[in-house]
């Protein structure tokens, strides 16, 4: 079975004010179907760039990005995206945001409405459908952003530090929600974060990206089950230490 997402020798250069910059060099990363992979990396590294390449929003300057063995031509609903900030369109209601993708596809109005309501219920916001993002809390907005990305029934979910700006309690709730949704729908998830604990809580695998120019330093499987006891297990602690030191903490 081919990988849901594969980055083969991906490199990305761009021109900044100071001259050419290599954001990523020789990145090899594979996501199996329904696999949950957390990408760890220092702030300012190439994490977001990697995600944009995976989504097809940017074209790599070296190497290729494949989805199910075929090269990725550009962005699409099969690779859903959830971002940290400016996630929702402020000029549309929560329902309008979730219906965005289906509307572009040409879904009929009742069909869209049903889908939106179902998804909003799945993320726990059935009563917020007609509210504008400015009237929602941060946590609620990220829920709607997740619902919007899921509306396209994506095979791959790309998430760029989506919970970084939430308070600790809300973050926990969001992590639980994400796991619940993932358990139900089983897309592949590439979850970018700088928080080691979050990575170890959520992911099946953890990949660590070095600082600029970014390359994958190593990937590790995360031991399961992920309960309170496992969290204190020595393997987890060792992995945690390894990740922290790789990040230069």
């Amino acid at each position: 079975m081919s990988a849901a997402l594969e980055l083969r020798g991906v490199g990305f250069n761009y021109l900044s004010r100071r001259g050419p910059v290599s954001a990523l060099v020789g990145v090899d990363l594979t996501l199996a179907p329904s696999e949950f992979v957390c990408l760890l990396g220092p702030s300012g590294g190439g994490k977001s760039t990697l995600l944009a390449l995976a989504a097809g929003l940017l074209a790599p300057t070296a190497g290729q990005v494949f989805a199910h063995g075929r090269p990725v031509p550009g962005p699409g609903v099969e690779r859903g995206l959830v971002l940290q900030k400016h996630a929702l369109f402020p000029w549309r209601t929560a329902r309008g945001n979730v219906e965005f993708g289906p509307r572009l596809k040409g879904s009929s109005a009742p069909e869209r409405r049903r889908c939106a309501e179902e998804l909003l219920a799945a993320v726990g916001l059935p009563e917020c459908a007609d509210r504008y993002p400015s009237a929602l809390s941060e946590g609620q907005r990220q829920r709607v952003a997740l619902a919007r990305a899921l509306a396209g029934e994506p095979e791959i979910l790309l998430m760029d530090e989506p919970f970084a700006s939430l308070d600790a309690l809300t973050r926990r709730q969001m992590q639980e929600l994400l796991v619940a949704v993932w358990t139900q729908r089983r897309p592949s998830v590439l979850f970018v974060t700088h928080d080691v604990d979050e990575a170890l809580t959520l992911g099946d695998r953890v990949a660590v990206l070095s600082a600029c120019p970014g390359r994958i330093l190593f990937t590790r499987g995360v031991p399961r089950p992920r309960d309170a006891a496992a969290r204190l297990a020595p393997e987890t602690a060792a992995l945690r230490a390894e990740c922290l030191s790789a990040l230069g903490a």
Binding site: A52, A55, L57, G74, P75, G76, V77, R79, G80, L81, L83, K85, H86, A87, F89, F100, G101, L104, K105, R148, A149, G152
Partner: peptide, 15 residues
């Protein structure tokens, strides 16, 4: 216009 809006819209099928 923030890049994030453009990216989100593109991944949702707008171009």
């Amino acid at each position: 216009v923030e890049r994030e809006y453009v990216w989100a819209a593109r991944t949702l099928g707008a171009d």
